[in-house]
Nucleic acid binder design. Sequence first.
DNA 1: GTGAAAGCGCTAACAT
DNA 2: ATGTTAGCGCTTTCAC
Lengths: 342, 342
Amino acid sequence: MRSRFKPAVKLDDVAAHSGVSPSTVSLYMRHPDKVSAKSAEKISRAIEELGYVRNKIASQFTGGARLSMAVIVPSVANIIFGEAVQLIEKIVSEEGFQLLIASHNHSLEKEEAQVRSFLEWSPAAIALAGPEHTDATIKMLQQSGVPVVQMWQVEGQRFPAQVGVDHFSIGYHATRYLYETGCQKVAFFTTRFEEDVRAGKRYTGYLKAVAEQDQLPIVVNVPQSDNIYTATRPLLLKTMIKERGLDGIVASNDGIGAALLIEAADKGIAVPDKLSVLGFGDFPISAHLAPASLSTININAPCIAETTGKMMLRMNRDIDYQGDIVDVGYEIIPRGSTRLVI
Amino acid sequence: MRSRFKPAVKLDDVAAHSGVSPSTVSLYMRHPDKVSAKSAEKISRAIEELGYVRNKIASQFTGGARLSMAVIVPSVANIIFGEAVQLIEKIVSEEGFQLLIASHNHSLEKEEAQVRSFLEWSPAAIALAGPEHTDATIKMLQQSGVPVVQMWQVEGQRFPAQVGVDHFSIGYHATRYLYETGCQKVAFFTTRFEEDVRAGKRYTGYLKAVAEQDQLPIVVNVPQSDNIYTATRPLLLKTMIKERGLDGIVASNDGIGAALLIEAADKGIAVPDKLSVLGFGDFPISAHLAPASLSTININAPCIAETTGKMMLRMNRDIDYQGDIVDVGYEIIPRGSTRLVI
DNA sequence: GTGAAAGCGCTAACAT
DNA sequence: ATGTTAGCGCTTTCAC
């Protein structure tokens, strides 16, 4: 078969061209300082002249050393995951690893397929979001022996390496915060209710806080859309009419929170006096919304990413290291959309 | 050396376990329908029982068939690129390719390193953003013979495969649009002025339109920040004071445009009468900004991504196909922040 | 510090 | 439809 690819220059060619043996060139590629200055000079010139590109496929095949790491998140199009992935990439690539990235849009079946497909590349470590996976995923991971770190959600003991926050606790304290700042009746606005497990965790926390107040929960599931504002806005009045006395909303993310504030301003609903809103994620615009800026909960995503990257690296390096459980915590950022704590 | 990885089950093990030869198993892995139903049955059971995972490294090494494709964008944390990457991933993974992703934050040197590192994995195709690359990058790409698709910016003839828009034209027509809707003095707000080449292209288009009006250009470079709103807002009044009579702004993206509108509302500047703003990118919030929504320019990013993915696939499949130049175009979306065309 | 030789796990002729 | 064989490009002992 004809090929558009030029016949590749091989390590053997470099060896021939520079007058040393292939194994010396190989040694030079991996540890340049372990060959004599004279050989190094000749080899590097040959590489330059020939335009040699090392074949990592062959390297990993032969040497067995794993050259990639993998990360699977629900969505790279989501800014929070996008930034995290970018940071992890930076960290692991500095140690020479190729980062493999995939996203499954909250589908555990797609995640399973992606884990399978990544395993075929023999990665040195894998990072996954949350503790929920199909049985087959778990089984493959265990069989492979590839170190895995559970990201975002700290929960359960399936994986001894976990970096993230406890979303249940966030949902609980977010709701408590609204009650403590004077709300009587609090609803939970979310999107992708069934699929987004971490939002689901926050919802469970909300449920507990609501139950403690002897109230009935109110959930609003914003339909999926490519414009969260357009999808969310009409639901505010609808919900307030249906649920008389509603005066507080925990939003599953700042996109929904911002949409709610925009709609409230448009309809003349006084924030925070008639309606308090607490978001999640501290989006850039949240502090700039007017007339009321959006109170929110911030988790330290860069810290999660950095810790995850470093943990993958360490688990790969140190075979006795099983990983740690690190909860990076969160903070409530009070702004104009909630009342001051009394 | 001790290893945490379980000794892998190999194709030979599957063959032994199922009582057929390794090549039959290999055939089954690649074309399940080309082995007899009986063998297929035995093999699939053996795979199941043994938990066999195919070794793609060995596959690609032996077979020569390239199993991955690569895409390099300025930033995956940028929503527009994040979505595009996700779409490309979907498209190429459906044909069995592993998508390799990297981002370099507008650094051509980092891009060069990433191209080098991707080439080591022998990808079947590579997609890059824009026509600007280091000489070494170009040379490596040519030497390798790997098909490359130039994304986002359609320009030049280095690569016969290009999918995107003409950012120069966008900058030019955006500026013309403001003049045509009654603006007298138009400025250009951007960020990362030196690095973001596509924003630079739009700026060049702006320059042309301004020159045609016999005006002097006004550029404002928003300092880099993790919050574009915070960075942009203070610059509005400063610029309006310095440039008396300024009544139109072309914003390099909707983040800056939104920040400008928020600041204008806060300071009581009438939009669009005293100030018109035209953004770029049609962010979800743009249509929902109040009191004036943000007029913007929309490029069909999903179309760029999809076309790029398909073109990579086709270039890999059909050796005679050199790619096409496809300009997906753009549209101006008039909203509240610009006057109606007279 | 350097070279010779063996072999990693799979695929691709080719023969049957 | 299935088995036999050779070998992909590199790394890794092990001598020298």
